[in-house]
Amino acid sequence: MLTIEDLQVKIGDQVILSHIDLELKPGETHVLFGPNGSGKTSLLMTIMGYPGYKVTHGKIAFKGQDITHTPIHERAGLGIGMAYQRPPSIAGLKTRQMVQICAQAKGGRKVDPEVLAREVKFERFLDRDINVGFSGGEIKRSELLQLMAQDADLMMFDEPESGVDLENITLVGETIAKLLQRGAPRAKKSENEPTVKERLINRTKMGLIISHTGFILDYLTVDKAQVLYNGVLSCKNNPGEILKCIGEFGYEECVKCLM
């Protein structure tokens, strides 16, 4: 479980998030909407533990542990992972090595980078330096690949579908659904496979997805949608309803009407 209570965050002297309350139960996935510059990425970076995002009020707890001031790598060790909107590139570090690093995040997990990469059509990038010269869409798949290796319990996705072409959007959508144990229900192939209901009960992964378009919702259901507006989490509602409202009236009106 992730619990955020009355959080205020500053970059330098500027308040960029305030009065943020958020609760994400095991198995839940939320989607986060909000206009450019409203603080969505900042919220994720704060949860991840980036020291540039100073928590000046409130607290963050994960799996019952106060992590408000826990360093980034310890949060990764606890099972928090993030697919970035704009990750840095690291010259000389191969994508293959990065996948192995991710696999160690929670302790010695064994992965085969080739096998994982195949799932996001990324085999031929394994021997390239991580993110160096990757296109926008390639970055998204690289980030997903890393999360696949990491096997985090809380996965945060920062605009996973933006800049992804029509062919790959399905791939991205289905990969996220799978990571969050939300793959579309399909007919049982064998006796041992869990039923849809069992799957629902056994679902433990938590997801927080930032989206502008909501396209991602074509591939997975989410439990809740929230709108971040001017650094404040303004409403919680059914994602379809919110999207429709934003589309028709714009963020400003939408936030007012649903508050």
Binding site: M48, G49, Y50, P51, P71, I72, H73, R75, A76, G77, G81, M82, Y84, P87, P88, I90, A91, G92, L93, Q97, M98, I101, C102, Q104, A105, K106, D129, Q146, Q150
Partner: peptide, 30 residues
């Protein structure tokens, strides 16, 4: 070394020292 590169690796589970040496190793591996 750019702080954001270190932090990126930290978010993949490496400590600050491990992240730094990974970046240095990458820097030298041409």
């Amino acid at each position: 070394i750019a702080a954001e590169e270190i932090q990126y690796l930290q978010s993949r589970g490496l400590s600050e020292e491990e992240a730094t040496s990974t970046i240095v190793r990458g820097f030298m591996s041409v």
